[in-house]
Design a protein around this nucleic acid. Sequence first.
RNA 1: GGAGGAAUGGCAGAGUGGUUGAAUGCACCGGUCUUGAAAACCGACGUACCGCAAGGUACCGGGGGUUCGAAUCCCUCUUCCUCCGCCA
Length: 426
Amino acid sequence: MLQVTTLRNERERVLEGLRKRGLDAAADVDRVVELDDRRKELQSRTEDLLAERNSLSREIGDLFKSGRKEEATAKRERVNEIKEATGPLEEQLDATVRELEEALLQLPNVPDHRVPAGATAEDNEVYRPHAGELPKPGAEARPHWELADTYGIFDLELGVRTTGSGFPVFTGQGARLQRALVNFFLDRNTAAGYTEYAPPLLVNEDTARATGQLPDKEGQMYYVQADDLYLIPTAEVPLTNLYRGELLDADALPVKLTGYTPCFRREAGSYGAHVRGLNRVHQFDKVEIVQLARPEESYAKLDEMVDHVAGLLEELGLPYRVLRLCGGDMGFTSAMTYDFEVWSAAQERWLEVSSVSNFETYQSNRLKLRYRTDRGTELLHTLNGSALALPRIIAALLENNQTEDGILLPEKLHGYVGKERLLPVR
RNA sequence: GGAGGAAUGGCAGAGUGGUUGAAUGCACCGGUCUUGAAAACCGACGUACCGCAAGGUACCGGGGGUUCGAAUCCCUCUUCCUCCGCCA
């Protein structure tokens, strides 16, 4: 959620930024400022009345103590009049605050000045192109969903039996590979100073709202009606919310968290050739990294996270590139996002495996996540990134490393998987 | 699932209707003393919002109520603790 002061003081920058998302927000911004003006007016009128009531009450107390009952009763009348006036005023104030908040929640984050304008993925900027040749496993290169059968990696039919489409069941050495990747990523993240957490997979509405999944992604999350809980679409949600409402000392910063969780996404309406195999599923495993940083440091931390994720992909020997997302392709809550894509040799296209973003104060404003400075308290910047999302990593490992002698695993994984290559099971 | 108890500032812990945003101790910060440190002593020490300021308002788990006035009384919800039962 944007801050009203930002909308007031930096109106032009905000409008220009939102234009990069293809949004003309002038009317919305003006409406927020108007509502805030109204809020201030109602608040000060209400508080003036309350101040009078409080001081009269004190006088009444004194009068009673000194036994001057009639005077006390007279003042009590006046207090009752005040109460009649404050009631409706407070209702108006509450309604205005709610309206203000609703209006504010409709506005997405303002893109950083470096974010390119644009409507779709076409307009994303290749920030770090892939260096060197892309692997060519040959004309008979098989896509990962075919390899999965031969090598016994995962089974989509079994998932349909237990649940429905889009819930792959990892089997045998595939399940082992999955566990290996989770451990590898967590080990690398903790070595880089991220503290490991294993958070809940269901969250309440306040939590989903604080990181911005609500109201923006309402229909994308699985919702458990009986208990009013949402299945997390990413570990970002519980991890960032661990610090909701905190007021941190400056020397505690930056806070660095990592966590492995399954992620659940309804992906309503996405079908077709591009969603075959592991390309898009309803449940998948992901290891996430989160940072809470001082505003002046946050973009340096974003770079640090980008380098860290790049390091993971290099250790896995996967060809990748980094994109800087354009305004239209960026998430609702982000101020700047880098996407990592790995090359899928058989599908001959790039697959997104990580998204690393700086939310600036958009989340922390809702989270009420602040830190102490010499000047008082200030909102922190929140950042997060996948390090990494597993399914497409597995797809790329299978497709890129297929040989006549089996699927060769990157050296870093040998110890984790317990072997150097995957062999056919049928 | 049943029975009881509790929720107060960074922590511990007073406070059961009146100027209490809240005693006291610890921690933290500034100072005195000291070659330096410790100890001792002195002082400062919550957050948000409104206001140019003076100042004001709100907050003692959440919500609602009683009252001229609520941390304090009532209702309700949540969480935690103890005991019993059940279960992984």
